[in-house]
């Protein structure tokens, strides 16, 4: 499949992780990952559309249906999250959900961090109602904003030339 034995350096790291956890830690990790996702679901489902009501495990997928009615798409909400100090969720995947917002908190988030994220998502939902333009033009706090991807692809500049 590839030369030599594979990405051995990654094996060492993965084994260190398993040893640090042990059977109890691995189980608790899974439980916390599922707990976190369900917590987010519970705290956001009144404001964001849940296209599938089936029980969530480690991630929850909302859609931008309600916000899209105000002209704001999942990609805009994602960019606005950056202004609140978070990395966005996965945008537009899976394809079966139109305007997907796929949130996987993992087990590594404290309750405080989760609540901050939830507050941010709720604040953005409010902004969508009150000042959609603010969300549609996000992010406002970064060095560069809304890079021109079309231009990048039309005339690719893939290296520096002196």
């Amino acid at each position: 499949m590839r030369g030599f034995y594979g990405n051995v350096g990654m094996f060492i790291r993965a084994l260190a992780y398993i040893l640090a956890n042990g059977p109890d830690g691995l189980r608790q990790t899974t439980e916390d990952a599922v707990l976190n996702a369900n917590y987010i679901r519970r705290k956001l489902e009144d404001l964001y559309e849940l296209p599938y009501k089936t029980a969530s495990m480690h991630e929850v997928v909302f859609s931008d249906k309600r916000q899209a009615a105000r002209g704001v798409k999942t990609g805009d909400i994602a960019k606005r999250l950056i202004d609140y100090g978070f990395h966005p969720y996965t945008v537009s995947f899976p394809l079966i959900v139109h305007g997907a917002m796929m949130i996987e908190p993992t087990e590594s988030e404290s309750l405080e961090e989760l609540d901050l994220f939830i507050d941010a998502m709720r604040a953005i939902a409010r902004e969508v109602e009150e000042s959609p333009e603010l969300v549609k033009s996000a992010p406002h706090s970064t060095r560069v904003s809304r890079l021109d991807e079309v231009a990048a692809a039309r005339k690719p500049v893939l290296r520096w030339r002196g």
């Binding site: 640090a20 956890n21 990790t29 707990l35 369900n38 917590y39 519970r42």
Partner: peptide
């Protein structure tokens, strides 16, 4: 488990908020 940033009480609180009796 030292990588997990949650106290038992916090887990209980979250479960209660979710409306689940147990994990």
């Amino acid at each position: 488990m030292r990588y997990l940033p949650k106290s038992p009480a916090e887990r209980d609180r979250m479960l209660a908020d979710i409306g689940a009796a147990s994990i």
